[in-house]
């Protein structure tokens, strides 16, 4: 993971995401080929933008149930006490940590945006979309280069 590349590799996404998940949840996320079908609800998507030699977005997409579990674990509170603000805060930090670590693998200089979190239906995967399973939940991390710099290797 230490080699500087002009693209973001799938192995880097897997390595960084597993480390972040272990830090936040105490569980290792295992990469998987695809996610389970959605139960009809919107998902939460947290994203950061990297701007530099490589520019694009790094996004984390997960179910409200897993988002609530993350917030519950981090804030050490019961599920009924988890509010939307807390969930968005936690997801933003997840995207910030994954995006920041991937940015560190790219040539400098580059900048990382503050995270943003939205609710959205499940969409079509990006150039690089990696699914993970953690416990009984799954989620995905995607990387999408800007239109003029689609330098992502899958």
């Amino acid at each position: 993971m230490s080699e500087i590349s002009h693209s973001i590799e799938r192995d880097s996404v897997i390595e960084v995401t597993r480390a972040v998940c272990e830090c936040l949840l105490g569980d290792l996320a295992e990469p998987c080929s695809q996610r389970r079908p959605l139960d009809g609800t919107d998902e939460l998507v947290a994203s950061v933008t990297i701007t530099g030699v490589w520019s694009g977005d790094v996004s984390v997409r997960l179910s409200p149930a897993l988002a609530t579990r993350l917030a519950r674990e981090i804030f050490e509170i019961d599920p009924t006490s988890v509010d939307e603000v807390g969930v968005r805060d936690v997801l933003g930090e997840v995207a910030n940590m994954i995006g920041g670590n991937l940015k560190a693998l790219l040539p400098e200089p580059s900048r990382l945006s503050l995270p943003r979190v939205v609710r959205a239906p499940r969409g079509v995967g990006s150039e690089l979309t990696q699914a993970f399973v953690v416990g009984s939940d799954d989620f995905e991390v995607s990387v999408k280069g800007s239109s003029d710099q689609p330098m992502v290797r899958s």
């Binding site: 936040l24 917030a71 981090i74 804030f75 050490e76 807390g86 805060d89 936690v90 930090e93």
Partner: peptide
């Protein structure tokens, strides 16, 4: 830190 979650962590 601007994230309350990260301050707790």
């Amino acid at each position: 830190d601007d994230s309350r979650a990260m301050r707790m962590i």
